[in-house]
Design a binder for these strands. Structure first.
Lengths: 204, 204
DNA sequence: GAATATTTTAAACGATTGTTTAAAATATTC
DNA sequence: GAATATTTTAAACAATCGTTTAAAATATTC
């Protein structure tokens, strides 16, 4: 009977997520996962049919998590300046919580672009957000600088994500402890918010 | 006699660089390298003592290339606005020429942070650039926004590098061909230049 | 509680990994 | 041009990879 402990399938899934995030698909072995989950190695193929299948299940979840929250904010009924701040803030919190997420996603897509089967829905989903509408309107009335959504979206995420993507590098180069990095990234985040708003918004 | 063809050692090194950049350390096998170089597999260990040694030699070169050019620009005797433009432009050209470079470096450091043995010299090297001097002076005289070099440096690189880091992702999401991506990244680059200057420089 | 279904186990599968060997081929030396 | 040194080769090494097997342990059904 398994009342207290979680089901084996979930235990493996969670363990696999931790290991994949840390070491990537190529760097992770089935035995790594079994060891992290403290289970017999045969069980990874008993519950999931293969390492690849297990990976794809986790990868899809993480991609969802990565895009879902930002789209939610882009559709909020708030002014564009607040919205930009919220997107950056959300991005920062996500990176703080899961610093390995972006390097993991980027790397796996880079090595196997077919993995990004995200239905083209994502494009239309982004294009049809309230944010995009606000952007068009602001540009029309001269309140916002003419800039495509393809440019403004990466701007809102790249500065923060890049910091965490190269967390180890930045810490080593600038000789920062974990605490110092956190303080630094916090102040960096505020610069990013202000910088993007300054550039995009032509009059208040 | 080897008059025309390059020496075997260099042939292997160049082949290994191509494969490592594309597939990373974990994803690359010794046989991949041998095949790319069109040489017997035993030669990779004959010239370089192991896959790891061969990798580290290439990795060090690429890291040098990655940092060297930016430091050169940071020390140029030009005004800070032109300098920012040049750093971004240089970064953009480097990414265009070798789109796999940043994801490769970030990923390998992420998986094995000890690989970044870059002497702490790099920190002092960055801190003692003319750019840093100009930054301090500009802040002192109120011409520049108070911002640490630790923040302004990543700002100048992250926006461009992130675009290429997630090249496959951005192309798929926004449904861009290679040509469209090039045009897009070019315009994005100009936005980045203007945005950073706008934010940093308080009066002209 | 015997019969059935499900889960877990240890052990092994063939394939591939990085690396080494020892002989063959080629280049260099004197 | 024989002797020596260097480079290249095919073959094999033990270790590890993802995966499978068939039996043991446990849970469920009636």
């Amino acid at each position: 009977m398994k009342c207290v402990s979680e089901k084996s399938e979930d235990k493996i899934r969670e363990a696999a997520k931790r290991v994949f995030l840390k070491k990537g698909f190529d760097g992770t072995t089935s035995r790594d996962i079994a060891k992290e989950a403290d289970m017999n190695i045969a069980l990874t193929n008993y519950y999931f049919r293969s390492k690849e299948k297990l990976f794809m299940e986790i990868f899809k979840d993480l991609m969802e998590m990565y895009f879902q929250s930002i789209i939610l904010i882009l559709n909020k009924p708030i002014d564009i300046k607040t919205k930009i701040s919220e997107v950056v803030e959300n991005n920062y919190q996500m990176m703080k919580q899961e610093p390995d997420l972006v390097i993991f996603i980027m790397n796996e897509i880079h090595k196997e672009p077919e993995r990004l089967l995200v239905k083209t829905a994502l494009y239309h989903q982004l294009k049809s957000t309230l944010f995009n509408q606000q952007l068009d309107e602001g540009i029309e009335t001269g309140k916002l600088r003419p800039i495509r959504i393809e440019s403004i979206l990466p701007l809102m995420t790249s500065c923060i994500e890049f910091l965490f993507l190269g967390k180890e590098m930045h810490q080593k180069i600038f000789n920062m402890s974990d605490e110092e990095f956190e303080a630094f990234s916090e102040s960096h985040k505020d610069h990013v918010k202000a910088m993007i708003c300054n550039y995009l918004i032509l009059e208040d």
